[in-house]
């Protein structure tokens, strides 16, 4: 494919897909080890009421109110999950399931009641996003990467998800040791004076930021898949967390690139007319990678269960 076609039409969706996948997969590693993987699912559902409320308050569906509404909704959800878990003495998975279905349902009701018919705000959009639409119209080829005028026309989503990825990366880099230590042995970490509950909250907040930024660009299906599939597949490749993180990034990038290409060209190769949803295909590829790892990866037979 020539740059003339590729750069304006495919480069930005591809980059946004890759950045979203990696931004979710990175914190996903820790969520998985903490048995909180469902948090990604919870967050991506609860952003719906957040977005609807943001629309009702501001009357517009633009990026910043939407993201702030989504972020606030995720924080409400995180607090609610903790409250339900502690006050109701319910296991974390059930507390998450209860919270996100209740909030998602509330979002649907709000959406029905409010007059949002004139704007692009629907459940389908929330699920699949619109990755294919995030094109770079100002570009004419590879040379546009050096052209400040064309660069100014890059989709806002690209900048936001790139900044989010940097923020997630910096957080993991700086908090690596406390995160690892408190995930492995919380009581020991506390005896060192670590505020383990703050570390846990910071991780969830960072995951929520990644989820909201990715959701804005690519919809919730990718978010849910990327929090779980690349880290889970990566865990089967190695017995060291540092290497697991690397594998999860590799798998996230692979899912995004392969998924995007297969969604665009796969149906044509099969003789079908229409391309399929890139978000759906990216999530499917990540699931297939996990399945392949479950069958053939080197560390899938583990003797880590307690001895007795």
């Amino acid at each position: 494919m020539s740059g003339v076609e590729f750069v304006p039409l495919s480069l930005t969706p591809l980059l946004i897909g890759v950045f979203s996948a990696v931004a979710c997969a990175l914190p996903g590693n820790f969520l998985l080890l903490r048995r909180q993987a469902l948090i990604g699912d919870a967050i991506s559902h609860v952003v719906l009421p957040g977005i609807v409320v943001a629309f009702l308050v501001t009357g517009v569906v633009t990026a910043w109110p939407t993201m702030i509404g989504a972020a606030l909704a995720s924080l409400v959800a995180v607090v609610m999950i903790e409250a339900v878990r502690r006050l109701g003495r319910i296991e974390p998975g059930a507390a998450m399931g209860l919270t996100f279905t209740a909030m998602f349902a509330g979002g649907v009701l709000l959406l029905e009641q409010s007059d949002t018919s004139g704007v692009h705000l629907d459940v389908e959009h929330a699920l699949y996003g619109n990755l294919e639409a995030l094109i770079w119209l100002d570009a004419v080829g590879w040379e546009s990467l050096l052209d400040p005028v064309a660069l100014a026309g890059l989709p806002d989503e690209l900048l936001r998800i790139a900044l989010t990825l940097v923020a997630v990366g910096v957080f993991l880099w700086v908090c690596w040791r406390p995160l690892k230590l408190s995930t492995f042995d919380e009581a020991f970490a506390q005896t060192l004076g670590m505020r383990t509950s703050w570390i846990g909250l910071a991780l969830v907040v960072v995951a929520a930021i990644a989820a909201v930024a990715a959701f804005d660009a690519v919809g919730s299906i990718i978010v849910i898949a990327m929090f779980i599939c690349p880290p889970a597949a990566a865990r089967l490749m190695t017995n060291r967390l540092e290497i697991q993180i690397t594998w999860s990034v590799v798998f996230a990038v692979l899912s995004a690139v392969l998924g995007y290409i297969l969604a665009g060209y796969g149906p044509l190769w099969l003789g079908l007319d229409n391309a399929v949803s890139a978000a759906g295909m990216i999530a499917t590829v990540s699931g297939l990678i996990l399945a392949a790892c479950a069958l053939w990866a080197p560390c899938r037979m583990r003797s880590g269960a307690p001895a007795q």
Partner: peptide
């Protein structure tokens, strides 16, 4: 009290005891 399936090596667990020296 801990999950021994955690992806880490023996030496890494012992190094956790040096957290005060190593810091962030």
């Amino acid at each position: 009290s801990v999950d021994w399936d955690f992806p880490t090596r023996v030496i890494d667990v012992v190094l956790m005891g040096l957290y005060r020296e190593l810091g962030l």
